[in-house]
């Protein structure tokens, strides 16, 4: 019986383990990509929703809100806002910002056109249809 703890064995385990588990991650990611069409609501990802995502990104909405739970925690979750509030409320809300109530959190007004608002709502409609394994726990997000 030998008794050793060598640097070369430790190094080999590091390299071997890293490659092994990276390949496993790639394998699982490959399977995920195969499974996504059933879950990611891509049939509702139309041109308007794609434009909506672009608006979402270029106004840095993620800097205050979460989307499917990821982002900043300063303002409400919006992944399910379409279900919670409906299209008309969303548009009216965005247009009425900022509220200007002293001491309350303020959302900037981004001066979006009607067409842009429709695109954004279409994006929220798409996100609300993604199969998120029943998250969030309730409609409040």
């Amino acid at each position: 019986m030998s008794s050793a703890f060598t640097k070369s064995a430790a190094r080999n385990i590091f390299y071997g383990g890293a490659v092994f588990f990276f390949l496993l991650l790639v394998g699982l990611s490959f399977d995920t990509m195969q499974t996504l069409p059933k879950r990611d609501n891509r049939e509702n990802l139309n041109e308007s929703a794609i434009r909506g995502k672009h608006i979402w990104e270029t106004r840095n909405c993620i800097g205050c809100h979460t989307l499917l739970g990821e982002g900043a925690y300063f303002a409400p979750e919006l992944g399910n806002v379409y279900t919670r509030r409906g299209p008309d409320f969303i548009k009216a809300w965005i247009q009425s910002q900022p509220t200007g109530v002293p001491g309350r959190r303020q959302m900037p007004n981004f001066n979006l056109t009607d067409a842009q608002l429709d695109d954004l709502v279409e994006f929220f409609k798409y996100t609300a249809g993604i199969d998120t394994a029943k998250w969030p726990p309730n409609i409040e997000g």
Binding site: L28, D31, T35, A133
Partner: peptide, 10 residues
């Protein structure tokens, strides 16, 4: 990958 639309085995 629990709640972002990815498969539930995650």
């Amino acid at each position: 990958y629990y709640w972002i639309g990815t498969p539930e085995y995650w």
